[in-house]
Amino acid sequence: MITDRALVDKIISGDMQAFKLLIKQNERLVAHMVSRLVDNPEDREELCQDVFLKVYQKLSGFNFQSKLSTWIATIAYRHSVNYLKKKKIPIEGDIEQEEFQSRTHFVVHENPENLFSNKDLKDFMVQMVDKLPVQYKTVVTLFHLEGMKLPEIEQVTELPVNTIKSHLFRARKLLKEKLKLYLVKEELL
C-alpha cells in the first residue's frame, strides 16, 4: 500500500498513473460528497471531475497536516458549496419542521411494511437525507458514510466541533421524528 506522501511525490513528478490511482482511491468519497450536496444529477459527474482537476492543480501545496482523503473531501465540499452559492441554493441555517414535512410529504404515501425491506429502507433514507439542509447532510455523510471522526469533519467543513455535534444530533433527531410520524400515521390508517 503506497503512502500519501509517496503518492503525492509521484504525481508531482508527472506520474499520471499515480494520479489515476489517487482518483480510484478517492472517487467514492468525492461522489458521495457531491451527490449528497448537489441535487442536479447532470452536474454531479462534471463537478466530481472538477474536484479532481483542482486536487491535481493544488497538490504541490498539500502540506500533509491532514490525511490526503480529508484534504480531498475539503476540496469536494468547498467546490460543491461554491456550486450551490452560484445556483443561489441556501447552505446555512436550520430547517423548519413544517418545511421539512411539506418537502417529504411523499413519504407518508408509502407502505411501512416495505420500509423494512432493504431496498425500501435505503430509498426511504436516501430521500429523507436529501431533504435535509446542506450542512446537516454534510456532517451525516462524513460521519456515517465516510466514517470520519469529529476533528476530521472540522477540517473539512471548518465548523466548530460543537456545531458539528449539534448538527449531527439534530439531523438524526429530525429524521427519527419523521420516521416516527410516518409510522404513527400509517398505524392510525
Binding site: 458521495h32 451527490s35 435505503k122 433514507m125 437525507v129 456515517h144 438524526r172
Partner: peptide, 18 residues
Amino acid sequence: IYKGLEAEPEFTLSTDFA
C-alpha cells in the same frame, strides 16, 4: 436511521471516470 445513513447513495461515476 443509522442504517439508512450508512446506505450508499445511488449516484455512481462512469466507468471511465478516472
